[in-house]
Design a protein around this nucleic acid. Structure first.
Length: 434
DNA sequence: ATATCCCGCCAAGAT
DNA sequence: ATCTTGGCGGGATAT
């Protein structure tokens, strides 16, 4: 019957084939292989000859990082979730491991996750976001101006030049600069980390936290995040990564895609403003221009459509998997639960929290939003923290967690005080989503 | 044509 | 060596 476009089996086979072909290639680093196999041409299977098959046309949207992230969140943003295994996640979500890394890296960058060990993460939840952002801001202040590390490539260039000069050895052998560069890259072993998705995410977010403008296009961001040395290639790569990041941040409702101006280039707008208590007097910067924004629901509408498409796929996939992998019973149970909640009535209790509701503080929140009771909530939050505590056995982590709780309290009181329009805004979106 | 951005190769890092 | 991470960019899709 249905035959979903890409079943796990197919993926596995494709991967195997690709691996086989790859292994046939010479080990040479060369310049990057140019003849990529690309075993998966796409197409829904049944096709045959002509334009028909009015249904289930393969769409890359079904596999977008944003959608994946959404699913990831519905899967793990629950009270009883503590640890996350990457394999488990990949299996549940029906994607390859590689994609999980992408998600997890940006999630960790905004404080929703913490890496606990190899293959293992701890779920913090949206409550971790405020602190993460705060620390981001702080680190930025210390960092003086320069965001993170612009122009790393420039540096390399300079260094290679430096080395190009005969420091010693008058008759230095004409080692090609590329070799030296290689050496340098190895020497500066943190080079890899400098380009990590996680760091890039943080720097991207810093752009919003630092600058007044809360809207920025990815091109601009890329230009800012790179130094001056915007070589076409680097720019391209950077922008690609920024797309990835932007998509998951969007699905987290931390940013939203908009059409700058009227029909100008698309850009991304920061939605986490309320998180940054820029309080001069105690009054938060309540909400940006209400009327000017265009899309807001449209973006979500689009994704909702995707979710719809995805649902049936996911569903059947899970079914299949249930038979296939009898082993991880817990995992499967989790999957099913998640899917069920995704399909039908979600958390019967409520919803409403904006993007940063404390993980697991569900019912405490539902009061309709007119009773102050900040203190009460803080209390609730504390009690929640008590239930968390067992996880944090050592002092350092305990402190960290305390800090986290405090940050949350601060943020929350300010938030409740200031913009609740924002909350509506968020709540609406999130409600749509979950 | 340009904008998006998924896919998966394969090289660093860990074990 | 094997396994885990994840940079990177080709090129398919979306617009």
């Amino acid at each position: 019957m249905s035959a979903s476009p890409s079943s796990v089996a197919e993926v596995a086979v494709a991967a195997a084939a690709a691996a086989a072909m790859a292994s046939a290639l010479p080990q040479e680093k060369q310049q990057q292989q140019q003849a990529r196999p690309r075993p998966r041409p796409m197409h829904a299977g049944g096709g045959g000859g002509g334009a028909n098959g009015r249904h289930h046309a393969y769409s890359r949207k079904d596999k977008s990082l944003g959608l994946l992230c959404s699913n990831f969140v519905v899967l793990y943003n629950r009270d009883d979730v503590e640890f996350i295994g990457l394999d488990e996640a990949a299996k549940c979500l029906g994607v390859e491991r590689r994609r999980i890394y992408d998600i997890v890296n940006v999630l960790e960058s905004v404080g929703i996750l913490v890496r606990k060990a190899k293959n293992r993460y701890t779920w913090i939840g949206f409550g971790g976001v405020p602190m993460a952002l705060r620390e981001l801001k702080i680190s930025d202040d210390e960092d003086d101006d320069t965001l993170g590390n612009p122009g790393a490539d420039i540096e390399n260039e300079k260094l290679s030049q430096t080395l190009d000069n005969p420091s010693d050895k008058p008759g230095a052998p004409p080692l090609p600069p590329s070799i030296w560069l290689r050496i340098l890259v190895v020497t500066f072993s943190d080079h890899r980390k400098e380009k990590s998705l996680g760091l890039l995410t943080q720097n991207f977010v810093k752009l919003f936290l630092t600058m007044e403008v809360d809207t920025i296009s990815l091109d601009e961001a890329a230009k800012l995040l790179l130094g001056e040395g915007h070589e076409e290639t680097n720019m391209r790569t950077k922008v690609r990564r920024l797309y990835d990041i932007a998509n998951v941040l969007s699905s987290l409702n931390l940013i939203e895609k908009i059409q700058q101006g009227d029909s100008r280039k698309p850009a991304f707008r920061w939605l986490g403003r309320a998180t940054m208590p820029n309080t001069e007097n105690g009054v938060t910067v309540a909400v940006p221009p209400p009327g000017k924004t265009t899309s807001n629901k449209r973006a979500f509408g689009t994704e909702l459509t995707n979710i719809d498409i995805h649902r049936s796929n996911l569903d059947s996939k899970i079914q299949k998997k249930a038979k296939l992998a009898q082993s991880g019973g817990d995992v499967l149970t989790n999957c099913k639960l998640a899917v069920r909640s995704q399909l039908g009535q979600v958390k019967q209790s409520g919803f409403v929290y904006g993007p940063f509701h404390p993980a697991g503080a569900r019912k405490h929140e539902l009061d309709g939003g007119n009773k102050p009771g900040q203190r009460e909530r803080a209390q609730d939050w504390e009690s929640l923290s008590a239930s968390f505590r067992p996880q944090y056995q050592n002092q350092a982590l305990g402190d960290l967690f305390a800090h986290y709780v405090e940050a949350w309290k601060t943020w929350y009181s300010e938030f409740a005080q200031g913009s609740n329009i924002m909350q509506q805004h968020f709540g609406h979106s999130v409600n749509h989503f979950l």
